[in-house]
Every structure is written in C-alpha cells, then in structure tokens.
C-alpha cells in the first residue's frame, strides 16, 4: 500500500495537468486544485499552469487567470527573477492564444491602489 501511494514528480505533474484538462471542470474545482497545488513546496510546472489557464477559459473567468499568474509569481519566493520569467516564457503561447495579460502587463506586479487601514477608518 505504502509503495503504491508513492508518487513521482512526473506523476504529480500529470495528475494536476489531467485534472485541469477535464472538459467539465468548474470554477470551484479550479480554485480547489490551485489551492492544493500552491500548498505544495514547489512552483507549478508551466504545463500545469497552461492547463489551468485553459480551464479558466472554459469557465469564462478572466480574473482567475491573472490571479493564478500572480500566485505563481508569489510562489517563486526570493528566486522570482530566476523562475518567473522562465514560467512566463514557457506559457507565452497559451497567453497569446487566449488573450491573457500577465500581471505585469496590467501593472499588477507593483501595488496599484492603496487601501485604507480598517483600524484607522474611525
């Protein structure tokens, strides 16, 4: 049992990729799978991200795409300058096909709006 539950990296990537590639996936499942994926100690493979973005297209949720890219960027930690450009480079065909803007193209790599501190409103 314990031997059969061991999952290689390749199997892990394939499991998430095939989950996102399901034709009847809905927004709830995309978010759930992304939360599961982001809770792992890893930066998702570009092919998984591409599959997730395709899934967002099928459920017509543009904001979710940008949020996924942002959270992947956040997952890169202090090696964001190494890993994130590689990820974007690998998923660039998907971005161009679907017409998705990266957070950088929307100006979301830096803070855009300030929010008043709720403890200082009154």
């Amino acid at each position: 049992m314990s031997a059969s539950t061991h999952e290689t990296d390749e199997e892990f990537d394939a499991r998430f990729e095939s989950y996102f590639n399901r034709k009847d996936i809905d927004g709830w499942e995309i978010r759930k799978a992304m939360h599961d994926l982001l809770s792992e100690d890893l930066v998702p493979e570009p092919r998984i991200i591409s599959a997730a973005l395709q899934a967002c297209r099928r459920v017509n949720d543009f904001a979710l795409c940008v949020r996924i890219l942002e959270s992947v960027r956040n997952k890169c930690g202090n090696r964001v300058n190494e890993i994130y450009p590689y990820v974007i480079q690998e998923i660039r065909p998907t971005l161009d096909t679907l017409g998705i803007s990266t957070p950088e193209e929307l100006g979301y790599d830096k803070p855009e709006l300030a929010m008043e501190d709720v403890y200082e409103i009154h």
């Binding site: 904001a63 949020r67 942002e70 017409g99 803007s101 957070p103 929307l106 979301y108 803070p111």
Partner: peptide, 25 residues
C-alpha cells in the same frame, strides 16, 4: 467572448470585480 477583444481597462475592471487587492498590494 474572445479575451483578445478586452482592453486593458476592461481586464483590470474584471480583475477588480472578482478581487479587492492584488497580491502585490
């Protein structure tokens, strides 16, 4: 429809429709 027809402002409006703050903010 096709997301290529969305302008940057519309994309940002869609984002702010679903989310309050960006992760950078």
């Amino acid at each position: 429809g096709d997301w290529k027809n969305l302008s940057v402002e519309e994309k940002k409006a869609l984002y702010r429709f679903s989310f309050c703050q960006t992760i950078a903010e």
